[in-house]
């Protein structure tokens, strides 16, 4: 009986302590990971999935060509809009990053902005910047290797060799194949 009362008291105290602990002892701030949305939850994801689906539905004979054309137009529009919104967001983030005026502003916002910028970087690379043969234009203007696949980058500006047509490296001054000096 006594044992039971002690056990009951323990249960009660443990429960109350556990529930009220955040109020009594706020403790150290917790690290929380904010996950990106599921692709299916973003307008872009929904539009892309819909585009894939109508492709499949046409292939299985469920969509007539006329309907397919209509839907294709509709979802392409939606997807483009989503992509534009995405790059606009990235632009905004870059602007925020460029102007550090806020002086030690919210770390959180800065990190988020930087991450967003990086995420959309591949698609909003500065024109004339380096490009990876596999992954397309890269955002880092001074990169030599692709940060995505590790392949060597070539500058869009350098282009092919005037002598033999071989691809020139980003900073090459002479062609590795024929020795012709690269156009400055």
């Amino acid at each position: 009986m006594t044992l039971e009362i002690v056990a009951a008291a323990l249960v009660g105290v443990a429960a109350v302590w556990w529930v009220l602990q955040p109020l009594i002892a706020p403790g150290t701030p917790r690290m929380t990971v904010i996950e990106p949305l599921d692709p299916e939850e973003t307008p872009k994801g929904v539009a892309l999935a819909a585009l894939k689906e109508i492709e499949f539905d046409r292939e299985t004979g469920k969509l007539s060509n006329e309907d397919y054309a209509f839907l294709k137009g509709k979802y392409t529009g939606a997807a483009l809009e989503a992509l534009r919104a995405e790059s606009a967001e990235a632009e905004e983030a870059r602007a925020a990053e460029a102007g550090p005026g806020s002086g030690g502003g919210d770390v959180e916002i800065m990190i988020a902005a930087r991450v967003r910028a990086l995420r959309s970087a591949a698609i909003s690379a500065p024109p004339g910047g380096p490009a990876c043969p596999a992954c397309g234009p890269r955002p880092e203007s001074d990169a030599e290797f692709c940060s995505s696949c590790g392949d060597r980058l070539h500058s869009a500006a350098s282009g092919p060799c005037a002598g033999c047509g071989a691809e020139l490296g980003a900073d090459s001054r002479f062609c590795a194949q024929c020795g012709t000096a690269a156009a400055a």
Partner: peptide
């Protein structure tokens, strides 16, 4: 933009 869309679709 169309190129971007194509790439996004490929990645899906």
């Amino acid at each position: 933009e169309l190129e971007r869309l194509r790439r996004a679709l490929r990645e899906t």
